[in-house]
Write a protein that binds this DNA or RNA. Sequence first.
DNA 1: CAGTCGTGGAA
DNA 2: TTTCCAAGACT
Length: 345
Amino acid sequence: MEDRVASLLLDWYADHARSLTWRAAPGSALPDPYRVWLSEVMLQQTTTAAVAPYFSRFTQRWPDVQALAAAPEEEVMAAWAGLGYYSRARNLVAAAREVAAMGGFPDTEEELRQLPGLGAYTAAAIAAIAFGRRAVVVDANVERVVSRLFAIEEPLPGSRKIIRQRADSITPDERSGDFAQAMMDLGATICTARDARCLLCPLQEVCQGRVTGDPLRLPVKAAKKPKPSRTGTAFWIERDSHVWLVTRPGRGMLGGMRALPDDGWSAGSDGDEEAPLSGAWRAGGVVRHSFTHFHLELGVAIHAGDDCGEPSGLTGGEWWPVAEIEAAGLPTLFAKAARLALARA
DNA sequence: CAGTCGTGGAA
DNA sequence: TTTCCAAGACT
């Protein structure tokens, strides 16, 4: 059965591959490793629809890895704003500089794995897709498809080991890049998390999950913890058509990103409501935003004393032209807050 | 190993 | 409204 899977899947892929700008046509020449790498990093935990416009902007602005390596990190971070998981952007720059110094991308899974931001999945994906190497590519799609295909009852994440073994057993020696992308397309369009459209599936005749019962209940997953809810405050301080922005510490939430000053809210505790500046404040509204592991209700406080003397006590930030706030590269949470403040100004 | 780390769309 | 989840990496 194992060797049947690749054949069935690759045949299906020839006709049903999704058309994505970073992807080569099935069976065609190997795509540019730079574009494969960039797309794979952007696609980590991120939908193709969200990635598409960012991929276009990045490749237009930085057409190759040398260009990206030469870019100021700050500009790359700002260009990444809104896409989330910002450590990816920091690692992207670091990896680009390593690759540029090496004279090009390494072409083995093991070497790729050493680059910052490349884990087991991404290294395997690039080795297979960009360099035609046989690699066992396991992402959430593959986990789901394999769990159903082999009717694996053990719940995730404990089942990862057996899933990898099973994925290895069906990965072909040739065209493993197309095979990986076919598995992901199958998981994205047919064998999805909320549906199992078995009648449309090219693997229906070999799928054990379909025979053994309800494939939708696979893979079994451990229950998730409820998200806590936190409150915090962001502060809008405007003088002479400029707003005070800070750059957040490199590590942690929204690390390295420009932001409005705030009162220290975090996943673990509410903000302390302490303003960075004395004087009168007025309420600018509330932003509700959900992160991966907690909900945040962020109040926006607007400084009313915009005609007093030079604000003292403001350090570690910069005055940013309000008219160019879009170019500041604020993460979505603070972009929402800024929008609110500007609407109430 | 389990927690941290964004965001927007779908149900 | 709330939950789930999408081409995971890192600690």
